[in-house]
Amino acid sequence: MICKDRVVAVTGAGRGLGRAHALEFARQGAAVVVNDLGVARDGTGDPADGPARKVAEEIEELGGRAVVSVHDVAAEDGAAALVATALDAFGRLDVLVNNAGFLRDRMLVNLTEEEWDAVVRVHLKGHFLPLKHAARHWRAESRAGRAVDARVINTSSGAGLLGSVGQGNYSAAKAGIVGLTLVAAAELARYGVTVNAIAPAARTRMTEEVFARTMAPPADGGFDAMAPENVSPLVVWLGSERSRGVTGRVFEVEGGRICVMDGFRHGPAIDKGARWDPCELDAVVAGLLSSAPAPEPVYGA
């Protein structure tokens, strides 16, 4: 019960990772705002409350508290309504888990502007807007003299950290989420808010068709390393009071493995103290690269 009496909003909570997070938060004592538009894997179709309502009912069957949200969190009014739903239903908001997303995979030469915009909107804008409105609430609470011990857990991806062939739009959006996480962690610390990100690998509606063979459940009934429920314990811990002081970090999580990702850092450098001539840079760049670790390969390359 490490999240007893905390209030959590989880976007994209109707299926997959979001559903697993919502249920585990409920098991650990939290009241949950279950947000999901109920659309298809590629984001098409009319919004429906079925998936979110089913998860809310599962939480209530566990003896927990839940409320449904079908707001579009990639729209200004929808993100504001998500936060308002938590406040109206439970009187507070302690944790925001940004998880909603969908895929429109295509090689770059075939990727349309609409497919680019749709994926960047739901992932990157769909992280920014709920984060902004939650942060405004927490800032107001802090300025009013009320103690804030809030958490934001964003969802990036290995595609955003290393790249993924055929997923230029998704990789760019997920990389942007890492940058947003770092900025938010720095800006919101003064208000009592920590901001971290996860890069999960699990079998979900978004991945099961692409990775059908490698993500299939074990036939012998053993440990299912790709079950989305494996990711949720870290998310719940990050949402608890126990994670105070951990902020601006990105955790890769898959099965029973948790890895702290080591992002861009200042590497080998050389300073001439004057402007370089382009012809000098053959040896300079070669020397710098020979002293730096080789980049990890792009997924699918």
Results as ranks from 00 to 15, higher is better:
C3S: 13
A9S: 11
T11D: 07
G12N: 10
G14K: 07
R15Q: 14
R15I: 03
Q28M: 08
A31R: 11
R41T: 12
D42R: 04
G43I: 05
G45Y: 06
L62V: 10
G64I: 03
S69C: 04
A75P: 05
A80T: 11
A81L: 11
M107P: 12
V109R: 08
N110I: 00
L111M: 15
E115K: 00
L124T: 12
L124R: 12
F128R: 10
P130D: 07
L131H: 06
K132Y: 08
H137M: 10
R139E: 14
G145V: 04
A147K: 14
A150K: 06
V152T: 07
I153D: 04
S157C: 11
G158H: 00
G160W: 04
G163Q: 10
G163F: 07
G168F: 02
Y170R: 11
A172L: 01
K174A: 06
A175K: 07
I177K: 03
V178D: 09
L182Y: 01
V183K: 00
A185W: 02
G192I: 10
A197K: 03
P200M: 02
M206K: 05
M215R: 03
A216D: 08
M226R: 04
E241T: 13
R242C: 00
E254C: 15
G255P: 06
G256R: 12
R257G: 06
P268K: 04
L281R: 10
V285S: 01
P293W: 00
P295A: 11
